[in-house]
């Protein structure tokens, strides 16, 4: 199969960027989107041109490293799919595909399609942890947790930190990511002692990084490869209100 690509090229963080057109041929339908870009890059290298920089690591949808905006959609047109899991059979032969980086003030472009998502790490560092030494793994069921609560916490913990929620949000808000991280701890007894401090610090850090407000559009949930629900954002707001009423103001 053959594709025409319009890809964002940018030499560095403060350099001007622009779209460039490329054509790739002999693409197998079962190739992933990133494998297609690998083939394009080999072609560019053979032509003596600079290959296109993009991020990836596991290439099996678990690490959260990959992430492109494909035809205006973070991780491309398929729901519940990371860019690395997206297959070329989902694009008709001969199609023109537009590829852009995740765009947000808080995600500065490093090069071409690679953006710096360390803002998300700093949100975690602000409070997305439990500050006790847990030692070795405790016995299963040492702390009884109802099944539905465990499931809910597990669903929130499925977030791989890819940042597609920010990329898809019209406001570049990181509410879904932050809410997922706050939720999976707030739901479990181990997370309770520090819950007030945690939500206040993580929200403050999220704001400091320059992410937008959440307008409840719900585009984040639609783009999230792990299907994290915006109901976690409602939970984050409950945690926030609870902290306002009784918690330490940090």
């Amino acid at each position: 199969m053959k594709y025409h690509l319009r890809i964002w090229r940018q030499a560095g963080p403060d350099k001007p960027g622009r779209f460039e057109d490329y054509t790739v041929d002999n693409i197998e339908p079962d190739m992933s989107f990133l494998e297609m870009l690998d083939i394009l890059n080999e072609q560019l290298i053979k032509e003596g041109k600079e290959p296109i920089a993009f991020d990836s690591d596991c290439r099996e949808g678990i690490c959260g490293m990959c992430g492109l905006v494909i035809n205006g959609m973070a991780h491309g047109p398929r729901r519940l799919t990371t860019t690395c899991e997206l297959r070329m059979r989902h694009f008709p032969d001969g199609a023109t595909i537009t590829v852009e980086p995740f765009r947000a003030e808080a995600f500065p472009i490093i090069k071409d399609l690679v953006v710096d998502r360390s803002a998300l790490d700093r949100i975690i560092a602000a409070g997305g942890y439990i500050s006790v030494n847990t030692g070795s793994a405790p016995d299963a069921n040492a702390i009884p947790i109802p099944k539905h609560i465990a499931e809910e916490a597990m669903d929130a913990a499925a977030c791989i930190g890819c940042g597609a929620c920010v990329a898809a949000c019209p406001n570049a808000s990181a509410a879904l990511f932050t809410a997922a991280k706050i939720s999976h701890l707030a739901l479990l007894p181990q997370g309770h002692p520090e819950r007030e401090r945690r939500v206040q610090r993580m929200v403050a850090q999220m704001d400091l990084e320059g992410f937008g407000n959440c307008s409840n559009h719900g585009e984040c949930e639609a783009a999230c490869p792990k299907g994290i629900s915006i109901l976690n954002i409602a939970r984050m707001r409950r945690e926030f209100l609870r902290a306002q009423v009784r918690g330490p103001v940090v």
Partner: peptide, 28 residues
Amino acid sequence: LRNRRARSERYAMYASKGGPSKMSPASR
């Protein structure tokens, strides 16, 4: 205003995946 500032460089192409999204002209 904050939302505008949070993405100064706009997307050339922007589309919704639909699904659970609640985005509409009303919300925008």
